[in-house]
Every structure is written in structure tokens, then in C-alpha cells.
Amino acid sequence: MDTNDRSLTFGFLTTVDSPTHGVFGGYLVVDTTGRPLEFHCTTPVKVSRAQQILYGATLPGHLHGRQIGANLLAEATSRPVAVLIDAETLLHVRPHTPLPVGLVHRSEPAPSTPRDDEALVRFGTTVISLPADRHADVIDGLTALAGAVDLSEPFERIRAAIDEAQRH
């Protein structure tokens, strides 16, 4: 991978849980310097108590993986090097996309041992779980991006943008 290639892009996917509106989804695509190229956000999805009971353990997969995650990724025109997420529930998007999806660990301390089929890679202070069979493909690109921005930072931008969209 040519990390000087200015056409490389990276995706950041997250959800925002609003007590009044429901769950919003936001997806930001940036270039190698961290500048925004695309932004997609969903209307909020409000899950009732009955739906929670009916979907049971399958709810996160359906809501975060299919309804929000896959829906947002489908709208993007860029094909990013990887999609980074910051919540485990969003790992459910993996079955819906061919793109490598990496989990940025926000909790402290970050895990020190990977789960099955995962590789843990540290970029400075940020630790990311990547699919073990794909992580070699994306490390160079993510290293280049980490030279420009803290890899946990773009999620803050998405939250600010969703907040702005709500107020608008």
C-alpha cells in the first residue's frame, strides 16, 4: 500500500444514544490527513421495551449492525482502507461489509490480550482490535493516518456533528 497515496480514505463509524430521541448513527470518511470527505448520519431509531424483549440478544446485531451500521456504509461512495468503530455493539456490522472493521478501545486500561481471530495493534496511546486475517493489510494505512490524527479523535467530531444536526 502506498501510504503517500492521497486517495486513501478511512471510515469512522459510531452511534450516539439520545435518551429522548433514540439511537443516531454517524459515519465519517476522512483522507490521510484526517480531513473530512464524506459524512452520513441516520435519523434516530427508538427501540420500545417490547422490541427489546422480542429481539432479545439479537437486538444489538440488528440495530447497530444492520439498521444503522450497514445502512450507513452503503451510502458512502469511498471505499476506505478500514472502518474504525468505538463500541463493541458495532462489531455486528462485520457480517454486512467486506471492509475490515477495527474496534478502537476507549475503555482504560485497554485489553492486553486479543480475542479469538483478533489482533491487537497499538498506535501510540490508541489500541485497536483488527481482524487477525486482515490486520496486515491495513496497518500501513492506519499508521499514516495516526501520524496526522489521534485515531480516537474523529469519533468526537461525529458526535459534535450529530449534535449540530439535531439542533439544526
Binding site: F39, T43, P44, N71
Partner: peptide, 19 residues
């Protein structure tokens, strides 16, 4: 009847020119 989460939420999209 309890409706299922079938309908996909609407997505708003914004695209920006490269710097």
C-alpha cells in the same frame, strides 16, 4: 401487535471536496 425494526432509518449524506 409489536412492530419489528424493519424499516431502515433515513440517512442524510454530506460530501466535501478534497483540500
Amino acid at each position: 401487535s409489536v412492530s419489528l425494526l424493519d424499516a431502515l432509518p433515513k440517512v442524510s449524506s454530506f460530501r466535501f471536496p478534497r483540500a
